[in-house]
Each structure stands twice: as C-alpha cells, then as structure tokens.
Design a protein around this nucleic acid. Structure first.
Lengths: 139, 139
DNA sequence: TGTTACTGATACAGTTTCAGTTACATATTC
DNA sequence: GAATATGTAACTGAAACTGTATCAGTAACA
C-alpha cells in the first residue's frame, strides 16, 4: 500500500466529532462539515467514515440531518484502533521473495519480514497509548 | 513517500554482504550478485547501495572486481540506521493542514502530527534493537 | 596498452496508488 | 414531493516505484 492520508483524516474526523459533542444521531455531523475542517473533499471524508463505521467506531445515517457521530467516549478510542480501522500499517515494505535454491537468499527474507513486523507492532503499541481525547489537548 | 521496497532491499543486501564475509575491497560483492539473491535488477540494488554508502554503512568501488563491502561488524549495524540511510519512515501519512480560521481545525493537525511522530519513533526504537547479524539467524 | 567488468547517474516506459471530482441510487427529514 | 445526506462507482491527473537501457568514469589484468 502506498502512502495514504487515510489515517490522519480518520484521526482528525474523530477528534472533530468529539469536539462537536457528536454522541448520537441527533448530533450527527455531515461529511461536508468534516471536510471543511481539514480541508478536503467530502467524498474523501466519506470513504474514511465508511470504514470507521464498519469498524464500529462511529455511527452514520443518510438523509437530511444525517452524518456521523461517535459510538464511544473519546477517552476510550485509541489510535491503534483507528489505524486498524482504515487498514493502515507502518508501511516499511515487503521483503523480497529471495532467490530460489539459494539457502541464504531464502532465509534472509523471513528475518526481514520478522523485523518489519516487530517495528509495525511497536508503532501500534505506541498508538494504543494515545486516545482521540488526547488530540484535543493544547500544546 | 509511497510504499517502497528500499528498506527490505537494503536489509537483504547488508545481510548478504555479512554472509559473504565482505569486509573489504578485496571481497567486494557486485550488484549483480546481490540482485540475483533477491531477486531483482542490479540497478535497483545500486540505487540502494549508493544510499548505504553515503550513510557510511558500506564501501563501494567501481571497476573490475568492484562492488560493495561492509564497513562495520554486522552485530553493530542496527536496522534503524538502515532505515534512516534509505530515507524511510513509518509512513503513517501527513496530517491535513487544517482549515484556516477554524480554531479546532487548526489545533488538531498539530496533535495528529505528534501522534504520528511518536509512532514513528517507537518503530525506530524497536528497529534499533535488531542488527544485521540477527538477519542471518535461523528460525 | 587494450580489454573486460563494475559503479553511479540519467532517462524512459509501464504500473500502481492516491486525492479529488462528478454522478447517481438510496435513505431520511420536513 | 422537495431538500439533504450517505455510500459507491467511475474518471482524471499527479506522484512514486520498478524494471530497463544507456553512458561516462574507474579499476583490474593480461
């Protein structure tokens, strides 16, 4: 996967929902409003909110006065959940397959993959200590 | 930056040099040999080895019997050095700029950027505990 | 000295991926 | 029924990467 802005857009959207006290369908925020605060295109926002909704982090509703709202308290939504919801990872690359028949060429990619997975895991663990509520703090 | 294979290629190349006991110009390994073990194209390898050379991790020499060799012991080359050498990062994306004039829209991106930097740092710290020598281990 | 072999760099084509945009079917409120 | 919103599909243009070919410079070796 190439470099994507999905994670930042998702994090920004959730923080904005929290700031708007959007905790139910009656306080839904439209994709146009979310997009205006980035700023980006409403369709880009909806592509992300659709994934967040499938992950159970937010609720969405079509129709007039529709939009998105949080399904959990901002303090309880961690950023690693957000990253997983938008199918992101640390993107350090995939190891080359290794030359067939070459003993060292076949062994190294396995260890490279393990190192990449370890780095990915460390990034996720760090993100698990940051919540959507933290994104609204000053400083 | 989009998804790049530079980091895996660099890690594989360094591990291969270590396995070949390439510790000096007289034991230089050509880009063709390195490429054959991935497998990929020699030019792709040279694009990476040129960066590793600039970072001081390997030496290279042109001409007949030329190629690349390690400038340090495999146990002392950590993978975060390798990642920095090829200009990689965790690639979680860049935060949106935020809407001008919107107080919340301007504050959130700063915290999102901080979260991304924290995740990146965690990944690098984890990589700093893995060396090129570890890539040659079994299992 | 001439041949061979290698690096580094540059340039190009093809592929992939993404943001942004338009369009449309569906759903909901008024 | 009109207005407004989501979700999704299709298209465009930009960006980045791989693979490839090519060339100048360099070094070993007969």
């Amino acid at each position: 996967m190439s470099d994507s802005q999905r994670f930042p857009v998702a994090a920004h959207a959730l923080a904005y929902l929290a700031h708007s006290n959007a905790y139910g369908p009656d306080a839904a925020v439209s994709s146009a409003s979310l997009a205006a605060s980035m700023p980006t295109n409403p369709v880009v926002v909806r592509r992300v909110t659709a994934m967040l909704a499938k992950a159970g982090l937010i609720g969405t509703r079509a129709g007039a006065a529709g939009g998105a709202w949080l399904l959990a308290a901002p303090q309880s939504i961690t950023l690693d959940q957000v990253l997983r919801a938008v199918n992101g990872c640390a993107h350090l690359g995939c190891p080359p397959p290794g030359a067939k028949g070459c003993p060292v060429g076949e062994k190294i990619p396995k260890q490279v993959a393990r190192a990449i997975a370890a780095a990915d895991s460390a990034a996720n663990q760090r993100l698990s200590t940051i919540t959507v509520a933290d994104l609204l703090k000053d400083g």
